[in-house]
Design a protein around this nucleic acid. Sequence first.
RNA 1: GCGAAAGUGGCGGAAUUGGCAGACGCGCUGGACUUAGGAUCCAGUGGGAGCUUCCCUUAGGGGUUCGAGUCCCCUCUUUCGCACCA
Length: 827
Amino acid sequence: MEYPFSKIENKWQKIWNERRIFNPDESGPKPKYYVLSMFPYPSGILHCGHVSNYSIGDAVARLKMMEGFSVMQPMGWDAFGMPAENFAIQHNSHPRITTEENIAVMHEQFDSLGFGFDWDREISTCRPDYYVWGQHLFKKLYEKGLAYRKKSWQNWCDSCQTVLANEQVENGRCWRCHAEVEQKEMEQWFFRITKYAEELLDFSKMIDWPERVVTMQKNWIGKSEGTLVRFPLEEGEKSIEIFTTRPDTVYGVTFMALPPEHPLVQKWLAEEPDNAELHEFCHKVINEDKILRSAEDTTKEGIFSGRYCLNPLSGHRVQIWITNYVLMDYGTGAVMAVPAHDQRDFEFAKKYDIPMLLVIQNPEQNLSLETMQEAYIEPGINVNSGPFDGMPNEEGKEAISRLIEEKGFGKTTSTYRLRDWGISRQRYWGNPIPVINCPKCGVVMVPDEDLPVLLPDNVQVGKTTANPLLSVPEWLEVKCPQCGEDARRETDTMDTFVDSSWYYARFTDPKNAKMPFDPEKTNYWMPVDQYIGGIEHACMHLLYARFIGKFMRDLGWLEADEPFARLLTQGMVLKDGAKMSKSKGNMVDPGYIIDRFGADTLRLFLLFASPPDKDSEWSDDGVMGAFRFLNRVWRLIESNLEPIKRGLKLSPDSSEISASMRDLRFSTHSAVKKWLEDSLERMQYNTAIAAAMEHLNNCVAVKNPEALSEAELAVFAQACAVLPKMLYPYAPHVAEELWQMLGHETLIHEDGLPEYDERHLVRELVTYVVQINGKVRGKLEAAPDADQEELKTQALEVDNVKRSLEGWTVKKVIVIPGKMISIAAGK
RNA sequence: GCGAAAGUGGCGGAAUUGGCAGACGCGCUGGACUUAGGAUCCAGUGGGAGCUUCCCUUAGGGGUUCGAGUCCCCUCUUUCGCACCA
């Protein structure tokens, strides 16, 4: 017989909703706990990854409810973005319609799983009551100089009239129409995340972030300390600014390396329209595949610009080269090349026969330029370096940097790999940037009273690949708020990462129509105590959210320095070792599993399959195992209901019980102890569930409860009675039902965590293992606190130990209290 | 190439502080029961042998230790991240 999961699950979902146990406010006496799982894109199809992810969040939430917290676990929809736009195109519909339909479907699926979301707080990023505040935030960023427009190079597909991401470019061609992709300089909106780079490197406010994610963010931000140096051009007023981490080699600079995108190069190109060679080279490099161009084994290429600059320290003439191996995005977008001491520069100089200059000598073995096969990058002594000759180069770094600063040639500084966040998207389905471009006034912000800039509905997606917003004149054409003349709206929409960079705060006050959120409410709930999501968001989303969080703090909107105190990065659900995906055809439909075995079984299986932060392997048989387990618990309690209820009224503490019942009592208390540790401290739900399974096996071993003495019956009853609580965070419906069957009027979380008694964890006798030279040779029973000398003697008396020691001399005997006796013996 | 993590039965995984390797689940083998089930219950299940005993076993090799899956060194493999970062 299968337990009636379907009836039970409906029943408890209804009760939880009626009693509003998932809808906390700020007024209660309990301490708050904010659990947030990353909100999904509403694809319309629930997959096992969702179930796994949100089962973890729900386990956290329910455990914290049992622990006595007022738990808030909100849910919403990351509803803007290209997938939603493409979905609508495929279904020949409008993204607003398909998105709302998908949300309705997924909402229902979440409900059928019994997740404890506070649906009163539901938000959807594509609804104006949410995105109006994103526009508001944009204006605040603009006011503070943190949103700005600049030209930047983009992959442009002329036939699709759209910008492409690096991964949408395949061998220099558009992934869609296969037209050649060109590089185009375009005006784009950016958020100045780099202003917070230094603070984003401070992870001290994060209690429990995985080391992996912290390392990834540190690498992503990529701070490096060095010196900014200006090399004046030989002709004209200008200079080339470079950043170097090796100021000790400045005297060794023999050429400058600039990328073709560099503004100076662009200027020279304009000045020399007839220099075909130069134009051709620059055009070629700029349009090289960005991924290929930055690959390690790409051949270094360059062209001499015919111009020189001057080394500010030595006064030497320095050739200026245009190359393919310098990145415009990093540092100042220009490199001082020291071929003798940098391998890349060395290779380049060899290839193009550029002079080299040795400025660091190897103290071990004299180097000479004629014989060097590679750049010398080890420490050494400065030579050919004017006043710094003879100085160890590590000292030289500091001394030369100081001189540069004193003479006004540059300064000591840090640069970051982190780049400003480009948020412009030439797409329809996103939050409109609240800007009007006026031919007279330039960039004008849409006044507050005109917000939100509503996304017009009357567009036809898919009819043109260009931004559909261009095809809505009544939306596009407006009067300038400043001068009243004809102007046009900004047609770029915002990156969806903008929507998700502040949603955690909106959840604390999701219906506020007057402001993004009321600081009083937000400060009550923030920071998020436990954030849960995929590792793939380690750098982008999590960094953007931290940045906007800090910005909102600086605006005075909230107090928390960091939005997410704890982070758990959950693993993926794999099938046959591979990620489940439509293209591989290895998807499992959670809906089918719920219908056939129930939500509790599905949730339990996914949590039991592996620790939450590790990938797990889907297994149909594993689902059956989870289902069998729940049925066994059900049968144990249902078939012994009367004796258990009777036993619960009796005292289990009498010593007049059999040894096997003492073992069962021990099992109860030790299982609860392990369960509490694994559930709350270690967040290792698979072993917490294993502890419950093991304890169930011990309970089931009691064959005839009717024959037990009163004290024994009490032990048995208590043993069975902890099971519903141990199930609750992982299989909540069946847990509540069993709890009610046992006669309780409360809901489980109201009654609190299961408890154990240390007194029942003390055993009179334990098994000591006797080892000889690390090999188990015997066992003996003794009290856990038995006298050590006594134990040594006993150990040597064990038959098998005696036999094994024949012809050997005992050299040392070590007693590990309560565990083992280790004998070291030799011939 | 650099950085990080990992490698344990037929499978998913456990071993938290250096202390009986393989908890728990799946699968498999044998048995019981039978209203014949995707049921339940009992026993067994790392490999090997001369089977109450012994040997081998945590990717491979070495080391430290009374004792190593765990610590150290080398090698291999896998996964992830970064990748001409000046």
